[in-house]
Amino acid sequence: MNKRGLFAVPYVIWMGLFVVAPILIMLVYAFSTAGGGFTLDNFLGMGDYLSVFGRSFYLALIATLVCLLIGYPMSYWMAREGARFQKVAMLLIMLPMWMNFLLRTYSWMSILENNGLINQFFRAIGLLDALGVDHIQMIRTPGAVVLGMVYNYLPFMILPIYSVIVKLDRSLLEAAADLGASAGQVFRKVILPLSLPGVVSGVTMVFVPSVSTFAISRLLGGGTQMMLGDLIEQQFLGGAYDPQLGAAISMVMMAIVVVCMTVMNHFGEGEEQAVML
C-alpha cells in the first residue's frame, strides 16, 4: 500500500465494520430458519405482504413527484435571484431540519388530527356545520403520509437541483437566446437537459428515505398505512417477532431500490459529463 493509501485505512475499517458486516449478517439471517438452518421460506412467504410493498413504492413515488414539482421551480427561481436572496432562501429551507425529525412529525399530527388545528379552524368559521360533518378526515390517510414525506424530504430535492442550476454558465442561455430561442425554448432545450443530473440525485435522495420510512407512516398514517419500514420494524421490535423475515424483506427492498437507482442514474448519465465540462 502506498503512503496516500494509508489515509483511507480508518474509512475502510469503518465501512467494513458498520456497512459491509451488517449487510452480510442480514444476508445470513434472510436465508436462515429460527433454528439456524438454511431456508428459502422467508422469501417464499413474502407474497402475503405484496400490498405493503405496493403501498410503500406507490406513496414514495407520489411524494418524490410532489417534491420534484415543488422543488424544481423553487430551485430555478432561487438560482436566478441575487446572492443575498439565495442565502436567505437557503436558510429558510434548512431551518426546519434543525428541529428534531420526530418533533416535526408530531407537530403535523396535532395539525391534522380530527380535533386538530385545521379542523378547529374549519369549525370556527362554520365550514364543518355547513358541510354537515363533525370533522374532515386528514390524519390516518395516505395523503397525510405523503405530506409528511414531502415536508421532511423536500430540502433534499431542492439542494441538488439548485446547485446544478446556479452553476449553469449564463453565456449558454445567452447563446440560446441569440440563436432565436424564446424564454420557453431556452428552458426546454438548455436549462432542463443540463439540470437533469441534479434532478436525478434529488429524486434519489427523496425516494430512498421515503420508501423505507416507518415513523412518518406510523404517526401520520396511524397504523392504517403500513409501509415496508413499519413491517420490518415489527419483525425486529414488534409483536410479530421474526428477524429472519425482517432481514429478507430488507434485502428485497434494497434490491428493488438499487435497480430503480441504476435505471435513474443511467438516465442522467450523458448529462452528468456535460455539466462537468
Binding site: D169, A175, A176, L179, A181, S182, P193, L194
Partner: peptide, 27 residues
Amino acid sequence: PHLRQVNTVFQRYALFPHLNVFENVAF
C-alpha cells in the same frame, strides 16, 4: 436578442455541452 437578425460568437464559445457538433450547429 432572439428576435434580432444578429448572431453572436461568444468569447468562450458557449457551446452546448449536452449536444454534439451537429446538434450544436442545428440548434
